[in-house]
């Protein structure tokens, strides 16, 4: 992230890293073993070929 903000401190980087890790752990709940998404389960946002 320092490529975007060279002034980020080590403490900032540590805070960011921990938060990314927390988010990744939380995201595991999106596809738990007990109810896996199937291959054909589409996201709610779908592409439309015809321009609006």
């Amino acid at each position: 992230m320092r490529r975007f903000d060279p002034k980020l401190t080590d403490a900032d980087i540590d805070k960011i890293a921990h938060a990314i890790d927390d988010n990744a752990k939380g995201a595991a709940a999106l596809n738990p073993k007990k109810s896996r998404l199937r291959n054909s389960d589409e996201p709610v946002t779908t592409f439309e070929a015809e321009p609006q």
Binding site: I16, N23, A27, L30, E42, P43
Partner: peptide
Amino acid sequence: VAYATLAVDYIDAQRRRT
């Protein structure tokens, strides 16, 4: 932190919404 969100997690979240 938001910038580092995985694309697969985002797509799975949108799949869960259905």
